[in-house]
């Protein structure tokens, strides 16, 4: 079967690939383009480890066909740091010891980023709601919730 061309921007850089029809965005990102920050956990859209941001919205890359992403702007966790300086969310996750095995962390950070982009000063309940599609099996979630709240506070201080 003929390959399909697909073009999008990934963390600001233009990418173009020929893919098989039906290729998931997760597979295209990890195995074609080489961005392994989205993780393949359940491959059925329930664990959130593959979360990426497409045109500002949180999406599960394991359930998104790459061919539907033509012209899209895609952000992954590997694109968050700027010139070696960590994004406030990454810094907050480190400082709060909000990661152990680390497998869920990129998806958690994507979910948290979309929350903070839309709701810069979220309540605890809003953080819980935003993370509820992401499974963690190490931390007990509390350090992750605290990290997101801390990042929100540091963002609002920087803005002030």
């Amino acid at each position: 079967m003929a390959k399909i061309p697909v073009q999008f921007t990934l963390n600001g850089a233009e990418k173009a690939e020929f893919i098989d029809s039906g290729t998931t965005l997760l597979h295209a990102l990890r195995d074609k383009i080489g961005d392994t920050s989205p993780k393949g956990g359940c491959h059925q859209g329930t664990c959130g480890a593959c979360s990426v941001i497409i045109d500002g919205e949180l999406r599960l890359s394991c359930l998104t066909l790459a061919e539907t992403c033509n012209g899209a702007a895609i952000t992954t966790t590997s694109g968050l740091s700027q010139g070696g300086v960590l994004h406030p969310l990454q810094r907050a996750f480190l400082d709060a010891f909000a990661t152990q095995c680390g497998f869920c962390t990129p998806g958690m950070i994507m979910a948290a980023k979309v929350l903070l982009d839309h709701t810069p000063d979220p309540s605890r309940d809003e953080v819980v709601e935003a993370l509820s599609g992401n499974i963690c099996r190490c931390t007990g979630y509390e350090p992750i919730i605290q990290a997101v709240l801390t990042a929100a506070r540091s963002n609002s201080q920087n803005a002030a």
Binding site: S132, I135, R137
Partner: peptide, 9 residues
């Protein structure tokens, strides 16, 4: 594993 219940956030 996603059907293995554990408490969520």
């Amino acid at each position: 594993f996603n059907q293995y219940l554990m408490p969520g956030p």
